[in-house]
Amino acid sequence: MLLNVTRTLMSGLATTFQIFIFTLVFSLPLGLLLAFGTISRCRPLRCLIQVVVWIIRGTPLMLQLIIIFYGPGLWLGHNIWSGGEAGRITATVVAFTINYACYFSVIFRGGIEGVPAGQREAGQVLGMTKSQIFFKVTLLQMIKRIVPPMSNEIITLVKDTALARTIAAQELTFAGYSFMKSAGLTWPLFYTGIFYLVFVGILTLLFNFIEKKLDYFR
């Protein structure tokens, strides 16, 4: 039985991991773009992004997921998500990407604005280009500032993947719950918890490592 549960949980973990990785891969650059948008000189763009961020951060991720998964089918008459598990995972990644990009954009903006203007000016008077200033002067200082809040968000993302169960994607929590439904077993639920704890534990070690690496300057 233990082997059976482990196998099912592993396959749930694979789905969870896919959602996690793809969401990060897409939401990190999108978040950076949004952050640049919120500090751009173009006022309409700034306002638009602010409204979007307000809506996304102001409503439950679960609600956004349901709308993104079921909405297109009801509005267009046909489901844009390919049927089966793959479609559910794709829809989840899309909803999560939009949601997390908004949260990340706020953190990124804080990181960019947190680097004192004097740093950019010091680069300017030394004749550096804008991109040299960004990559050689501000970027690392920005990363150092955002690592703690980002690690919080990313750990939250691990646990938010469980929301994919709402649209019946067979991720880790779905897998653990299935044994309770079918056989009335509760111990697989605790076993599932251990999977999350290990996942988050590894991430925590990774973030501690990065923080240590950036500890050499202030």
Partner: peptide, 24 residues
């Protein structure tokens, strides 16, 4: 353009009140 301003800037050096050294 940025390039012109950069070359012009190089005529001047600037030492700031708050140093503004690059910490990294």
């Amino acid at each position: 353009n940025e390039k012109d301003i950069r070359t012009k800037r190089l005529h001047f050096g600037m030492v700031f009140q708050s140093f503004n050294l690059f910490p990294q």
